[in-house]
Amino acid sequence: MKSTPSADPQSTPLDARSLYLRRLVVRGLEGGNRGHVGASMSLIEILRVLYDDILRFRPDEPDWPQRDRCILSKGHGCLALYAILADKGYFDLAHFDEFCHVNGILGGHPERGKVPGVEASTGALGHGLAIGTGMALAARIQDRDSRVYVVMGDGEINEGSVWEAALSAGKHRLSNLTAIVDYNKIQSAGPTADIQDLEPLVDKWQSFGFAAVDVDGHDVDALRSLLTRTPLADDRPTAIICHTIKGKGIPIAEGDPTWHHRARFSPEILTDMYSAVGGKE
C-alpha cells in the first residue's frame, strides 16, 4: 500500500501554539545564524503532541526512571526538540540565542548530558531506533512500564541500521516501542521519490512486524488521537508514518530541498521567517 496523506498536510492550518514553537526555532536560527530549517519545521506538531499529550516526564527530574523516552533520531531537527523542551521548562529560552555558539549548550545536533531532556546524542543517522530497542528491552528487564518513542527522518531510513533495528524490534515484539517517521518527502539531495524511494512505506514497516499506520503529521487532533492509542498493538511495536511538509509554516522554505539547511540569513529572510510564524517575540 502506498502511503498517502489522509489530509493534505500542505493546507493543514497552524494554531497559536504551533506558531509559537516555530518562533522559538526561528530564534535559534537567528541565534546561530544557521540551522536545519526544513527538517525542524516539519517536526513541530509530532514533538508537540508527544510532549503535550503523550509522554510522561519530569522536567525537574530529567533522569526520573519511570519516564517515557523520546529519542530524536533525526538529530538535525534538533531546534524543534529544543523548542518543546525549553517550553516544558527543561532549560531557559535564552539558550536559543547561543545556538551553535562555542560555549552554548544547544548544538547543531542534540547531546545527552549537555541538554537536559535529550535522551541520546544523535546526528549521525540511523542510530536512534537501535538505541530505542535497547531502552525498550531495558524497561522489560527492569519491569518498568516506560514507553519509548523514536522519531526518524525519511532520508534517515535509507540507513540499513534502521532496518536491522526494525528486525530486532519485530523479533522481540516490543510493544512499548513506537517508531515515528517524519515523512516530509524531501531529503538533502532532493525528493525521496527520486533519491531513494521508500514506498510502499507503511507496508514495509508492517512486514517488519510493526503495527503501522499513517497520519497527517501537522494535524494536531489526528496526531493526538492516534498517539493516545499507542501502542497500536499489544504484541508488537508500532510505526507511525507522518506525512509532513518540509519547512512547514515558512512559505519560502516549504517543499524546497535547498532549505534543508541554511546559514547566513539576511535581515530580509529573518523578517520573512518571523512574519510567517507570527512575528518576533
Binding site: P65, R112, E119, A120, G126, H127, L129, A130, I131, G132, T133, G134, M135, A136, L137, A138, A139, R140, I141, Q142, G160, S161, E164, A165, L167, S168
Partner: peptide, 28 residues
C-alpha cells in the same frame, strides 16, 4: 532468559541496542 540475547548478523543493531540498555543502567 530476559538477559540473554542472540540477535543475528546485525552488529550495528547489537551495539545500538547495548547502548540503549546501558543508558538505562544495564551493563551489556
Amino acid at each position: 532468559p530476559k538477559r540473554h540475547f542472540m540477535e543475528g548478523v546485525l552488529e550495528q543493531q547489537a551495539i545500538g541496542m547495548a547502548a540503549g540498555m546501558a543508558m538505562d543502567g544495564l551493563m551489556p
